[in-house]
Structure formats: C-alpha cells, structure tokens
C-alpha cells in the first residue's frame, strides 16, 4: 500500500512538472513570436535589404548552436532566446518587404501566417490529445533534415526553381514532424528545459512560415 502511495505521488509530481514545462514553453513561445513580429515590423520600417535575412539567420544559428545550450539552464537563456528570435524576426522583415511589393503580397503573407497558425495549433493539439510518444521519429527527422540541407547546398549553385519548391514542401513536412516530436518529448518528460523546448518549436514555426510563403508566392501566379 505504501509503495502504491509512493508511486502515485511520484506520477502526480511528474504530471505537475510536465504541465509546468508545457505552460512555460507556450508562454515563452507566445512572447518570442510577438517579439519577432515587432522586430519584423522594425526591419520593414527601416527597409532592410534582402541580405539582412541571411546575416540575421546565420547570426541566430550561431547563437542557437554555441550560446543557447550553455545558457539554457540559467536566466541568461531567456535573454539569449529573445536575442535569437529577435534576430530572426528582423531578418524576416526584409523578406516580407519583398512579398508586400507583389500584387497579391498582403494576401500571400496573410494566408501563410494563418496557415502556419492552423498547422501549429492542429499538430500541437493532436500531439497533446493523442498522448502518443513520437520520439521514435527522431532518427528519421534528423536524417530528413540532413537530406534537405544537402539539397539546399546543391541548389545554392544550381538555382533550380523546381528543386527550390520541393525543398520548401519537404521543410513543411519535416517541421510538422518536429512539432509532433518536440511536443511529445515535453509531454513524456524527455525535454524538461522550457527554453530549449521553445527554441525547437519556434524554429519549426518559423521554417513552416517561410516555406509556406515561398510556395504560395511561387504558385500564386504573381512571379
């Protein structure tokens, strides 16, 4: 009986811990997305050139690889995640300026924004309600990302529009898989650091938005 009480208390503790990580992750994710949007607006107001996107993304990537994992367990991690998402938002602003100049630009941006929101909410809801452990997808998702990165590398020099569209479609599917994977890792207790969890989900949302923007822009008949 005592053993049963102890295991029940432990499982309740772990559920409470999981709910806390989940709540903190979604709160920080909302804050970083709002901050990104503000930085994108600043970048658009400053009419930044397209190369600002690449420089910002590479800067954010360097911070995400080298600085964030070292600071994620302290309060400094919050500052670093805002710096990363702010940089990515700033870069995004220069891309949005290009799309806004298209005849259907505002419609494309609005559709990509709404579509990204629906994809994220739908997949998160599915992962939360199905209670399945999607961590078996880890090897497949990272292998898929490496294949996509090799295709991106090849297309930097080949400039094939069809390959570029295939890459965007592949990224949407892979990032959708990462939303399931990351959310289920939070639920199962595999990810207990809400800063790292936020970073993973933010990257998935950002990449889905950019890829959707590319697909809609290219297939809308505007260019």
């Amino acid at each position: 009986m005592n053993q049963f009480d102890l295991s029940t208390a432990r499982s309740q503790e772990s559920v409470l811990e999981t709910n806390k990580v989940l709540k903190n992750t979604y709160m920080l994710l909302s804050a970083t997305l709002v901050f990104s949007a503000i930085m994108a607006a600043v970048s658009m107001a400053m009419t930044m050139p397209p190369m600002a996107y690449m420089i910002s993304v590479i800067g954010a990537m360097v911070l995400g690889i080298f600085v964030l994992p070292r600071t994620a367990n302290s309060s400094k991690g919050i500052g670093v995640i805002f710096l990363i998402t702010g940089l990515m938002g700033f870069g995004l602003g220069s891309i949005l300026s290009i799309y806004l100049a298209l005849p259907k630009g505002p419609e494309i941006i609005g559709t990509a924004f709404g579509g990204t929101g629906i994809i994220f909410l739908g997949l998160s809801g599915y992962a939360l309600t199905s209670k399945r452990d999607f961590s078996f997808m880890g090897g497949f998702l990272f292998a898929g990302m490496m294949v996509v990165l090799l295709a991106v590398l090849a297309n930097l020099f080949m400039d094939l529009p069809a390959l570029s569209l295939a890459i965007s479609a592949g990224i949407i599917l892979l990032m959708s898989g990462f939303i399931l994977f990351d959310t289920s890792r939070i639920i199962s207790g595999g990810e207990t650091n809400y800063i790292m969890a936020t970073y993973g989900l933010y990257l998935a949302i950002f990449n889905i938005f950019i890829s959707l923007l590319h697909l809609l822009g290219a297939l809308s008949g505007d260019d």
Partner: peptide
C-alpha cells in the same frame, strides 16, 4: 552571399550529425 549561405548550411550539417547519430542509435523504435 552564396558562399556565406553554403558555409552556414555546412555548419548546420556538421552540428546535426551527432543528433542524427544519437537518435538513430539510442532513440526508441516505432
């Protein structure tokens, strides 16, 4: 710009390799 982007992609590939190895070797099976 292309060279800078290529360097970024190569860096991502380099840092993604250990994650791929970890998940393919130690990750749970479907």
């Amino acid at each position: 710009m292309k060279i800078l982007a290529a360097a970024g992609v190569v860096m991502m590939l380099f840092f993604m390799w250990p994650a791929y190895k970890h998940w393919s070797q130690n990750g749970p099976k479907a």
